[in-house]
């Protein structure tokens, strides 16, 4: 989006704009473009799942796709947690599909409609932090629910020498407490950086075409455009990988809580 003086601000795409003012108990819970895209993600996800609900014995393409994703998440949890992991499939599936759909929704070319631009829900720290807290909170609740105070033995790995008992639990505790931050920041940074890079390259293309000198489009715009095609494909890959990483780490953390190493 062009700001003043014809410059393209790569950060504008992350701006949250209220679409409808809403106050609740003194808090500003306005319906924003971020909320709109969350609703779109919900709608797209619901549509996707609805298409796979035919429950045919011989699945069609759509049902096959839905069952493929369901089987993928199921397999991820059974392989990292074991048979007990089945209980956590709904949670991990919801996290995975929400992040995946939000990432892809932010890549949709809604920008071809003037005045509209896609918004990536997962490029906001507030969103990824809540998702990370959901994941980490589940680990804490499951851990203390199943093992009580014995859950703290997670910080003393098997085979720790007695003379390191003062250090290892400290390191383990830190690495444990840092998990929600790494979960939240990884997704937030990956989505933000990718979208900024794409916007910067798009700026190169547009500003190059608008330049006075005739050689600029040839030297700047065309290579940037070609590079942008590659970066877009890479970004689509990152969208899927980040959703996968979030889901995989969540299932590994749940494994810690269920099986205590």
């Amino acid at each position: 989006m062009a700001g003043e003086s014809g410059k393209i601000d790569p950060m504008y795409q992350f701006k949250i704009e209220p679409l409808a003012q809403l106050q609740l108990a003194g808090y500003d819970v306005s319906f924003t473009n971020s909320s709109l895209f969350m609703i779109l993600v919900l709608g797209a996800l619901w549509l996707f799942m609805w298409g796979g609900m035919k429950r045919d014995l011989v699945p069609g393409r759509w049902q096959m796709a839905v069952e493929g994703v369901a089987g993928f998440v199921n397999n991820m949890l059974t392989s990292s947690v074991g048979p007990e992991g089945k209980k956590y499939v709904p949670l991990v599936f919801s996290l995975f599909m929400f992040i995946l759909m939000a990432n892809f929704m932010g890549m949709m070319p809604f920008g071809i409609v003037p005045g509209v631009h896609p918004f990536t829900v997962t490029s906001h720290l507030t969103i990824t932090a809540v998702l990370a807290v959901i994941s980490f909170g589940t680990v804490l609740i499951v851990g203390f629910w199943k093992h009580g105070l014995h859950f703290f033995s997670l910080f003393v790995p098997h085979g720790t020498p007695w003379w390191l008992l003062w250090l290892i639990p400290l390191i383990e505790l830190f690495s444990f407490l840092i998990r929600p931050f790494s979960l939240a920041l990884r997704l937030f940074v990956a989505m933000t950086a990718g979208h900024v890079l794409m916007k910067v390259l798009a700026g190169f293309v547009i500003n190059g075409l608008n330049a006075e000198a005739a050689w600029v489009p040839l030297v700047v715009s065309i290579p940037s455009f070609i590079l942008m095609i590659g970066i877009t494909l890479l970004e689509l890959l990152v969208c899927a990988i980040q959703a996968y990483v979030f889901a995989l780490l969540t299932s590994l953390y749940i494994n810690d809580a269920v099986n205590l190493h």
């Binding site: 819970v29 306005s30 909320s35 993600v41 829900v121 969103i127």
Partner: peptide, 11 residues
Amino acid sequence: ASQFFWLLIVF
């Protein structure tokens, strides 16, 4: 507040 509110509803 808006982000938390809508995310919790949607999620």
